[in-house]
Amino acid sequence: MELSRRDLITIGGKLLVLASVGAAFEEITGAAPPSEAYKMAEHWWGMIVDIDKCIGCGNCVRACSNENGVPKGYFRTWVERYEVENVDGRQEPHVESPNGAIDGFPPSTRQDVKSFYVPKLCNHCVDSPCVQVCPVGATFVSPDGVVLVDENYCLGCRYCIQACPYGCRYLHPEKRTADKCTLCYHRITQGLTTACCENCPTGARQLVDFKNPKDPVHEFLRTNKVEVLKPYMATGAKVYYKDLDGSVR
């Protein structure tokens, strides 16, 4: 059979129309399967940190590293030691965090300064700057309030790393994608607490669910002086610090 150019174009056109109709049908009907017991709409995760309980042991940092396979030299959570010196009436903070405090701190003996520990992690902001700058929609706030990164979608452009005012993100040295605290999403969605909260010996940090009316967070927020980091940036941070010193940035 002789195939003319006209026939070829006609057949090609028909095939194209058929294929695209099929693809559209697949898109409509082949949606993701419904998820099981955990209901995202019933949770809104955050964390409370009690500065007055943190002893700088670094248990949270080690736990996070073990649980999430954080590459060596990078940290999803870390602890800072503040030593605030009073110089002519000015508060001058000296901050250190040797290797993210993964092995704790060498003891501080300075009695002339106000010193304390500040554990830090992703603040899981509601209006997160990192989410706003992502050009491809690879980082997002989940329906239960956790800021996550889609590894398969991330280009590794580092915009989010620059945008985070808290320095909570890094470029994974092997995957070459942005990486950060997931608030142990794989644990909290099956009823466990985060690795850092599980292993904090003094209960300085606690995972909280703002949508649970019985969660102790409501009383905590009502009865204590709580602050978020960099409130003037209006990020909607959900990590609340109790008795945070004014010098902490």
Partner: peptide
């Protein structure tokens, strides 16, 4: 489905094994 991202990523992240 929930915003400008792939909801499949949530399931991928949830599949990470627990150590503690």
């Amino acid at each position: 489905k929930y915003g400008h991202y792939s909801p499949g990523a949530l399931d991928v992240i949830r599949q990470r094994p627990v150590s503690y």
